[in-house]
Simulated scan of single mutants.
Amino acid sequence: MNTFQLACFLAVSETLNFARAAQRMNITQPAVTHQIRSLEEELNTKLFRRTTRSVELTEAGRLFLHDANGMMTIAMRAKKRFEDPATGEICELSVGCHGYTHLFSLHEPLRQLAQSYPNLHPRLQVVPYDFLYRILEEEHVDVILSFQENAAKKVPGIYVELEKTPMVCVTTRPQALEGEGPLSLEQLRGQRLVLGDPRKAPRSLAQTQAQLLGERAPGELFFGESPEAVITLVKAGFGLALMPRLLAPPDPELVLRPLAGVEPLSFGMYYKTLKGNPVLRRFVELMRLQYAEMQ
């Protein structure tokens, strides 16, 4: 396996077209095809599903995509380091999460961290929920941001809580339910729902959504792949949504009503160890300070 093979794989992954990938790489299409086939032979798996009209990643290809990006980043960083050794040792910190919303809390801790480590090079990775704990276990990242998993799920890391966030009902002003204060689940039973993917949701949120499904007709349910997609459908008037308040953006068009009888969710960080990693230790301290000031 070499970086040229990885570059070809990434080009095809991004374009989903061998001809356009060849143009981007400034090589012939047969050369791209050859590199992909040799990579598939080495990995002993198919990375792409190809027909006469389309190209798409296989499940194995989606799994390998993260690895390929990581290997290319490391290779380019190593090359750059030796091209200009006078710049000093690069200080790396890799943070993983499964939603872009989680990234919005990082800018101030990273700014302060860079004051202590001028050669800091943060790497922020947004990956599918199913891969989040895998990249921590395989040490592709130093720390991940996530809601706390229940005790039944084995997570390869130490958990540090940053905040308790309540579950809220998110509606638009025209849709807003009558009254004020917390809502009971019973009050929501006649409403159309916008649901997130239960496989990507904290366990308590998935259980709460399940309680509301009942005998609902399919036409009363709408689905969003991400919190951002769910909010978009709510603002478009398709229904109301349940989500942790942490994920609900500040928006004058939205009304957030707390849910009665639903425990707040714990949001925080998982990491494997702080030993021998002063940069991560300081980052954890800064994140805890920031969330403490927000409460």
Results as ranks from 00 to 15, higher is better:
264 P>M: 02
114 A>K: 15
243 M>D: 02
213 L>I: 12
120 L>P: 05
148 Q>H: 15
260 A>R: 10
83 E>D: 13
228 E>W: 00
129 Y>D: 13
34 H>N: 06
9 F>L: 01
161 E>A: 15
204 S>D: 10
80 K>M: 11
138 E>Y: 13
137 E>L: 07
124 L>T: 01
271 Y>E: 08
145 L>H: 00
33 T>C: 02
203 R>F: 13
110 L>A: 08
48 F>K: 02
105 S>D: 12
135 I>S: 11
198 P>T: 05
31 A>V: 06
83 E>N: 09
70 G>F: 13
201 A>K: 07
200 K>M: 05
8 C>M: 09
183 L>V: 11
163 E>I: 15
109 P>F: 05
51 T>G: 03
31 A>W: 00
28 T>G: 04
125 Q>T: 12
150 N>W: 09
126 V>W: 09
31 A>I: 02
51 T>R: 03
291 Y>G: 03
1 M>G: 03
117 Y>Q: 04
196 G>N: 04
112 Q>L: 13
196 G>W: 01
195 L>V: 12
146 S>Y: 05
128 P>M: 04
206 A>T: 07
270 Y>H: 06
138 E>Q: 15
231 I>R: 02
113 L>G: 07
260 A>D: 14
78 A>M: 12
98 H>W: 11
265 L>P: 04
162 L>P: 14
165 T>Y: 05
66 H>W: 10
146 S>R: 08
251 D>V: 04
106 L>H: 08
